[in-house]
Amino acid sequence: MKQLPIIFKREFTSFFATPLAYVFLLIFLVLSSVFTFYLSGFYESGQANLNPFFNFHPWLYLFLVPALAMRMWAEERKSGTIELLMTLPITRFESVVGKFLAAWVFAGIALLLTFPMVLTVNYLGDPDNGAILTGYLGSWLLVGAYLSVGSCMSALAKNQVIAFILTVSLCFLFVVSGFSLVLDVFNGWAPQWLLDVVASFSFLTRFQAISKGVIDVRDLLYFLSFITAWLMATAVVIDLKKAD
């Protein structure tokens, strides 16, 4: 565990070594405002809450977060630095979690920079700030889930573009797995319990519950175990693919 902060620091500062961090922050802030004010009908709804803001996050993240995650391991493999990293006295756990946390904290900062949204809604009305807080928590957990998938795909594909596309596709499946679009595929032939399992994997239903202010331990556990599972998969994939 001693090396984890060192890996974290290196990864975190490397975001800012390229324009990536600034481009990500800018686009995230602009798009989240555009979605909230123009597409979601923030004013028209006449309600003092941030639901219009949070509702678009699963779709916004679908493209932004994979872009953040795609270089995580693909870059290491492409440039050969993975050989350096894996022969330094660092455990697999430290490198996988360190990289993941760096991206997760960075995305968390992007999320925190949307605070003017909170100020606005407080200025305009009298919102339930507790619900807003859980909304942020849910949104951050959602980013973590996307990032963990992205981490594994980045370890799998040497090519960053392929890692990006794989991550977007997989995350899309997890977002819509509660929708009839997906459930209809199973409907008719699959037993009811399988349908329930597939539906229960949906990011969307769990995220919506949290962002409305309802913190269910099961939802928290879902996101945390989802992240853990994908990070473990990342470690396995790295061991299989590192030498290719």
């Binding site: 290196r10 490397s14 070594a17 050969g80 630095t81 050989e83 350096l84 022969t87 330094l88 006295p89």
Partner: peptide
């Protein structure tokens, strides 16, 4: 692995380093 790796200094083929640092 870790105890052994602490004793080793290694220059991989092509000397890969983090280019953005």
């Amino acid at each position: 692995t870790l105890q052994a790796q602490r004793l080793i200094g290694y220059l991989p083929e092509g000397a890969p380093c983090y280019g953005d640092m």
